[in-house]
Design a protein around this nucleic acid. Sequence first.
RNA 1: GGGGCGGUAGCUCAAUUGGUUAGAGUACCGGACUGUCGAUCCGGUGGUUGCGGGUUCGAGUCCCGUCCGCCUCGCCA
Length: 600
Amino acid sequence: MRVEVSPAIEPEELTAGAEVVLAGWVDSRREHGGALIFIDLRDREGITQLVFDLEDCPREVVDAAERLRGEDVIAVTGAVRMRDGGPNPRLQTGEVELVVRKLTVLNKAQTPPFHPTDKDSVPNEELRLKHRYLDLRRPRMQEILRTRHKVLQTARRYFDENGFLEVETPVLYKSTPEGAREFILPSRLQPGMWYALPQSPQLFKQILMVAGCDRYMQICRCFRDEDPRADRQAEFSQIDLEMSFVEREDVMAMMEGFVRRLWKDVMHIDVPPLQRMTYQEAMDRFGIDRPDTRYALEIADVSDLARRTEFGVFQSALAKKGGVVRVIRVPGGADKLTRKITDGYQEFVKTFGAGGAPMVKVTPAGFETGIAKFLEPIRAELTQRLSLQPGDVLLFGADAYPVAVKALGELRQKVARDMGLVPEWGKAWNFLWVVDFPMFARDEESRRWVAMHHPFTAPRADQQKAFVDADPSNENVIGAMVSAGYDIVLNGSEIAGGSVRIHDPAVQSKVFSLLGLSPEQAQEKFSFLLEALKFGAPPHAGIAFGLDRLIMHLCGTENIRDVIAFPKTQIGSDLMTGAPGAVTPEQLKDLHVAAAVRPA
RNA sequence: GGGGCGGUAGCUCAAUUGGUUAGAGUACCGGACUGUCGAUCCGGUGGUUGCGGGUUCGAGUCCCGUCCGCCUCGCCA
C-alpha cells in the first residue's frame, strides 16, 4: 500500500473538500457512544483531528476506529472539512478536521510505558533512555532533533561558502597518552597492538594544512574516557576547523561570522560583535576562564586592606606565597542569603580547596555577623572602595591566588543562582572571546610544565622570538609566555576553543622539551607531525566548536543527553541497547586479549 | 576514588513520630454517551515500596550492604 506521508495537514490543504491521505500515530481518542469518535493523529509535524461519524463513514470504519489505542500506527483517507464543533486554537490545524472514509491499521502498539505527549509530566530519565524511540516522539525532542539538524546544515553551508573543504579523518587512530584518557581497541592483525579513538582530529587537520587543503572543516565525533557531567559525554561532537595562511584575527573573524549566522538562522537574533577579555582579566574579575558576564558580582582585590586586620584567616593567607584576599559584594544579599544558605557556602568552597568563605553583612549601623568585628578597622575604606550599601553581603576568599579566585569564581555563580540574577533562557546571549592564555601551567605535583591548551599551540605572534630565545630553566619567563589561543564563551560556558598552531619545527621541539618530552619521545609519539612540518608547512590556525553545547544553548536545555539522540548514562551505559556488554571468549581470542576481570 | 539527591501501581506522585487493609491522578479493562479536543460520567483490574540483610511486637519509613539514575569534586592536553 502506498501512503502519502504528510500527516499534519499543510496550510495549503486547509481548504474544505480536499481529499488527502494521512499517516501517523494515534495520539488520543475521544469517543461518544461509538457513533462519533475523534482521533488526534500525530506525526513529526503536529496533530490533525480525525473524525469517524456514522453519518459520514461506513460502520466497519467506525468500529475499527473504536479499537484504536494510543501509539497505534495508522493511515487514513478522507476529506478535509471545516470543523462542525468550532476551531481548536491550540492546534495548528485546529480549523479543520479529516472525515475518514478509509482506515488502515499499519501496526498496533502495545500500551506504551509512557505517553509521548503527556502534558503533565516528563517521565523519569531512566525510562526515557530505555525507551528512547518513545522519548524521541515527544514534541520537545523532535524540536531538538530539528534544531540540531539546522545547526549542522548551517555549518556546512557557511563554511562551504567560505571555501572550507569537508574532509573525514580516521576514527581508528593511534594512542597519544597526553591529555584525556583514551578508549583503545585491540588490533586483530597485529597481536598486542592497539588503536585509540581520537580525542580530537587535531593532528590530522594540521597535516591537512600541510597537505595543501587550505581550509578544512569536519563535523566529527570525539571520544574522551573521562567521567561525564551535565554538559560532558564520553562520546561527543565537534565542528572542527582549520585554516592556512592566516593569523589569529582571521580565524576569529571567520568564526564570529559563523556564530552570527547560526544565531540569525536558528534564533532569528542579531548577535553584536563579540567582546574580548584576556585570560588574566577573566581570572581576576570572575575567577574562571569562561566568565558568565550576564550578572555582576565581580571579584575585587582587598589584600592591602585585609593585611591591616587581626583576622587570622586573612593573615595566614597573606603569609602564603602568592597569598591574596579577594571579595564578592552581593547587593541585597543580607535579605536573601539566609544563615542556612551562607553556611552552605562554607562547605561549597571547601570542595574547591578553600578553607571557607568568611562573610559579613552591611547594615545602616555598620558591619554585622560573621567577621564584622575583625573588619572594623578597615570598614570605612572597604565601604568606599566597594561602594557598599546597606543590605550588601560580602563574601571573602583568602588563600593563594589560584585557590582564592577559583573558590570565589565558583561561589559567584552559585550566589547568582541563589539571588535569582541569572536571566532565564533566551533573554541574554553574552558571547565573549577569551584570549592571551598562558602557554604553560605549572603542575605542582610533578613540578613540571603542562600545556594550557595543547602542545601544538603557538606563542602569540609578538612573542614568537622571545619564546625561541627564552631560558627554559627560568620559571618566571616560561610561565609568562602568552599563547595565540582563543576560546568562545557563551553565558559562562565554553562553546569553542582553538589556537594558531606551531608550524616551525624548532618551536615545536622547544615546546616538547619544556613539557618534559625528550626528542626521542616526541619522535615516537608525533613523528608524523614533526616530519610533516619539515616539508613546507604553511602557517595555520584553527578552532573547534562543541556541537552538543551549541545545541544546548540554542534549545535552552541544561543537559547534554537531551541534545544527543542516543546518549549514555553516568557510567557509560546505553540503557536502550544495553552497551557496554560482554563478549565471547572467541572474540577475545581473535583479538589476542585476555580479560583480567569477569563482568559481575 | 570522594560527596550529595533520588528509586512506592504501566506512568507522575502521596503516605504524620516506626502503627489499621500502602492512596490519588492518569493509563489500562468493562459500561453509558452524536461535536469532542487533556471529552465527560459509572464501575473494575493493577503493588517483591530497586535488591539483600539487620533492628523492632510492628519497617515504604530506622541501620548496614548492594544495584540503577541524576548532580558534583577529582579528571576532561
